[in-house]
Design a binder for these strands. Structure first.
Lengths: 111, 111
DNA sequence: CAAGATACTTTGTAATACGAGGTATAGAAT
DNA sequence: ATTCTATACCTCGTATTACAAAGTATCTTG
């Protein structure tokens, strides 16, 4: 009920940052994030897939289907050129923002 | 349209962290945050006051009116004991969360 | 054959930042 | 005198969005 709200606004950024390293598919992304953050961030399907579709519609990502030998279809997402450009902006914005919050939140002993 | 979403979930935390240092009133809080974060975070009244009321209702804050000599009323907010306890939790949660996001978001060269 | 993991989808709901509007006072500028 | 700016509070409606929950389908493992 609180953790949930923290993610708002940074999920899209995280997805774009991940896909900067190369195309990935949904399930893979979720696992990657879960592992890389020691389960601090556990992307739920109800957030992940809508977020990917949203970014695709905004032109940040492009998607393509790929069938595995066993017949399982996977939808891969990759960052567009526009997505790359916007990622740079949002990364900087996140850094500014998180530094600002941390400054206020870390107790007065620093100030 | 994006910055807005980043704030979700961390506004309450920031307010509680500020009030840890002593009672403050709404306008003062907004100015303090704006100054302390070099205007990165600019709390709007439509967010600030509802957030304060919310925290009050949740028992995190207590409020009292105080009249200045010139007749202007100010509503001061202070952290409750329960608020103090919850603040500790949320502070830790924010640190975990922001570290996790930063890890994913900072490019692959670190990994 | 049942159970779990993999893999994607959609619908409805709850939470919340903020725009925009409102009220009221004090002091400075025109 | 009046307008403007700053201070100081409030509330309603809207947009956004994470997620729970449900569904579909395949493959592997017990």
């Amino acid at each position: 009920m609180f953790e949930r709200e923290l993610l708002k606004g940074s999920l899209g950024l995280m997805l774009m940052a991940l896909l900067e390293q190369g195309p990935m598919y949904g399930y893979q992304i979720a696992k990657h994030v879960r592992d890389q953050t020691d389960e601090v961030i556990d992307l739920k399907e109800g957030s992940l897939y809508p977020a990917l579709h949203r970014l695709e519609k905004e032109g940040m990502l492009e998607a393509f289907w790929q069938r595995r030998e066993d017949g399982v279809d996977r939808r891969y997402y990759q960052l567009t050129a526009e997505g790359m450009r916007v990622l740079t902006e949002r990364r900087a914005q996140w850094n500014r923002f998180s530094a600002a919050v941390s400054k206020v939140v870390s107790d007065g002993s620093i100030q």
